[in-house]
Each structure stands twice: as structure tokens, then as C-alpha cells.
Amino acid sequence: MHELSLATALVEQVAEIAVREKFERVVKIHLELGELSGVDRHCFEFCFPEVCKGSILEEAQLILDFVKLGRDFRIIDLDVL
């Protein structure tokens, strides 16, 4: 249920990184999603494109690594322009 908040937090976090690292567009975003992180993969994948509209992530390809027994939900890396 909180996947929408997480997707929003993700977009905000990437926007902050964009200011720091000086980039304008994200081509690919690579995330790690742990089985025990409390995040539902399908729900997140549904929310993500909606939240990204109008942001620097709008055209980004989403790569989700599902980690069995993992606890984290985190950004691994970004391909940026």
C-alpha cells in the first residue's frame, strides 16, 4: 500500500542526486528489491511510471533485481545523460 509513497520518495531522491551530479535525464534506473522489504513488486511497478511522469525519470527503463530473503529496497545505480 505504501508503494506510491516509495515511488514518490524515489523520484525526489533521484532529483536530489541530479542536482549534485549534474545530469538532466535518467535512461536506466537499477533497483534492488528485497523479499523482506515489505514492498510489493507488482504494485511498485504499477505506481512507478505514473509518479515518473514529468520528472527526469519519465523515460527511464526500470531494472528491478529481486533478492530472495533481502531486506533492502535501494537504488543500485543510474545511467544518466
Partner: peptide, 16 residues
């Protein structure tokens, strides 16, 4: 050549 890869490795709940 065009893309830059940025390592992040922080939790999405980092801000919270």
C-alpha cells in the same frame, strides 16, 4: 560514451 553510470547504493527510505 554518452551515458554516465552513477553508483548510488542508498535505500529509497534514506530520506525518511
Amino acid at each position: 560514451l554518452k551515458f554516465r553510470k552513477i553508483e548510488v547504493k542508498t535505500s529509497i527510505l534514506d530520506k525518511n
